[in-house]
Design a protein around this nucleic acid. Structure first.
Lengths: 117, 117
DNA sequence: CTATTATTCAACTGTAAGGTTGAATATTTG
DNA sequence: CAAATATTCAACCTTACAGTTGAATAATAG
């Protein structure tokens, strides 16, 4: 029995690289050509082209070829799935914040009601 | 100038593996020992131990050593950061859903008239 | 003390990831 | 058509990753 690789694998793996996150950040503002996406980076155009292919394979971007230019645009569904996977953990980190708040209230009480900062 | 690797790199990389996600899912329910975490998997205990170390290095779990047992528990702050990074994209995928709804409404309307296109 | 249990360490393997350079393929421009 | 532009393909390198097996360490139980 072999497992089909879960889509989340590819999504999170794609997000694990800062270059690719930066590309997504940019595509969130406007769809762009490969060259324009590559411009901010010090690495070669080829390297960026590879990053884009990773994003494409993960289904996070869409490519529209117009003559010699490839216009990339964001495709956010997979990001939604990634965010939804994290959702059940929210209670967990919010619980922590609640405890932190409790602690702060307790400290304020301990200060004995004189000045605050 | 060298860049410090962003914490999100480690977080998303850790989440990119189904075994590690399953471990987190379990730790979300209850903190557990290494052996118990390993039980559901077909891979060796050693392999699971390595996965746990990856999660630990990413700051997603915490280890408390009690005698020979290591008790692992979830540490969700980094997950919050991961979820927050995704947040600005929410508008994007919700916009898509809105468009989909528009399309559905439009189709329903068309069903009354004759064929288009 | 010895045996068992819980866990890691170390060494090795295969494969994929991120980067490079150089050439190839299309398309647009002069 | 020739030159410039946009992009990928191919080969290569280095490093990291997921997994294995076998031994080491440490704590508990009999």
């Amino acid at each position: 029995m072999r497992f089909e690789p879960h889509a989340l694998d590819a999504t999170y793996a794609a997000l694990a690289d800062p270059t690719r996150r930066a590309i997504l950040d940019r595509l969130k503002e406007e769809s762009s050509r490969v060259t324009d996406l590559a411009r901010p980076f010090t690495m070669s155009l080829n390297a960026v082209s590879k990053h884009i292919r990773v994003l494409e394979a993960a289904g996070l971007v869409e490519r529209e070829i117009r003559g010699r230019e490839h216009r990339l645009s964001l495709k956010a569904e997979k990001l939604r799935a990634a965010a939804e996977w994290l959702e059940p953990y929210r209670a967990f980190w919010e619980e922590r914040l609640d405890r932190l708040e409790e602690l702060l209230i307790q400290r304020r009480a301990e200060q004995g009601g004189s000045g605050e900062r």
